[in-house]
């Protein structure tokens, strides 16, 4: 028994995995429709954007900060890129994603400047940059939605890509979105960064203790800029990917999404005090959140309950983490 407890303590991901399994099995028992490939595929597809954004938040939280500006950055990158694609008449995928990522990166660096040089609490900084960026997009760039008929064709095709498709029991075809692969790739890159590079370990070290990190010889400024810059870049990328997946570019999209994403990351075992959390945990946390919120309908619960459920998940996950960390200190 203590062996299991110790394993859970050393690998918090196991806990999240257990929660996910229990959730999936329970929902599957209540309504077997859950197990249909179309449902499973759509859940995986739905977890892509939340998951990628979760990786951005994970980076920030590992360093001991928090970020609520990323949905605004994602939308800004997406809307500006799509507008540019239409205006300048290019629709190749790579330059488009490079542009969106670059916009996100620049915005993220603005956060870094405020957090590092002006020593302001990250929550308040990112609240400010998020609002300002959204105000800029809606107030200056435009408020109109770019619909499927105007969206760059190649972008739509990219978003439509499927890895494979299967025939379901009722004869209908259903496919797994190729975007899952993009998500997996980014997750792998972030995992490699965090686990196998010195700068990645520097993020953990910074979250573990800024003064100690400085004494050991980590460059705190470089690490802070990397964290917020990369978080912004990932958000920018995810923004355009989101546009490609839903075939529209809506500058009012993703309002309030930060709460879902933070919920997913916290559920994945990351601590807001920094230094604790992993890519695997975040992926599992994101999946769990998506499975729960997207299964309300097949559980026969009205979707208006979604906010309440997400809120309860945040509260439960943070209370559990606080309880865990208190035991650790004692």
């Amino acid at each position: 028994m203590s062996g299991i407890a110790a394993a859970f303590r050393r690998h918090p991901e196991l806990m999240v995995a257990a929660i996910l399994v229990v959730t999936v099995v329970t929902i599957g028992l209540v309504n077997p429709v859950f197990w249909q490939p179309s449902n499973l595929f759509s859940l995986l597809r739905a977890s892509v954007i939340t998951g990628i954004l979760g990786l951005a938040v994970l980076l920030v939280m590992l360093s001991g900060g928090i970020d609520v500006s990323f949905p605004a950055f994602a939308i800004a990158a997406m809307y500006l890129t799509v507008k540019a694609m239409i205006a300048w008449g290019f629709d190749s995928i790579l330059p488009a994603f490079a542009m969106a990522t670059g916009i996100g990166l620049l915005l993220g660096l603005v956060n870094a400047v405020f957090v590092h040089y002006l020593r302001m609490i990250p929550l308040i900084v990112t609240l400010g940059t998020g609002t300002a960026v959204r105000g800029f997009i809606l107030g200056i760039v435009g408020t109109s939605q770019i619909n499927i008929d105007q969206m760059p064709q190649r972008l739509i095709e990219f978003g439509r890509g499927q890895l494979f498709s299967v025939t379901q029991a009722d004869g209908s075809q259903t496919g797994l979105s190729a975007m899952v692969l993009v998500y997996a790739l980014i997750a792998l890159l972030v995992h490699l960064l965090l686990r196998y590079t010195m700068v990645g370990r520097g993020i953990y070290a910074l979250g573990g203790g800024e003064e100690a990190a400085r004494r050991v010889g980590f460059n705190i400024r470089q690490t802070t800029f990397l964290v917020y810059g990369l978080a912004g870049a990932i958000a920018g990328f995810a923004g355009l990917l989101h546009g490609a997946m839903i075939w529209t570019a809506n500058p009012r999209d993703m309002v309030g999404l930060e709460l879902d994403v933070i919920a997913a990351v916290v559920l994945g075992g990351a601590s807001i005090f920094g230094g604790r959390g992993s890519v695997i945990g975040t992926i599992l946390g994101g999946l769990t959140l998506i499975v729960i919120t997207n299964s309300l309908i097949i559980l026969g619960i009205d979707t208006t309950w979604q906010r309440v459920v997400v809120g309860l998940i945040v509260i439960t996950a943070t209370a559990a983490t606080a309880w865990r960390d208190r035991k650790r200190i004692a």
Binding site: I272, T304, V314, I315
Partner: peptide, 21 residues
Amino acid sequence: RVTPILATIGTGQVYTGICLV
């Protein structure tokens, strides 16, 4: 002992959620 940011993010969701319900 939930940190205030996360506690009130969570309850904010719940209160707004109850409004929706």
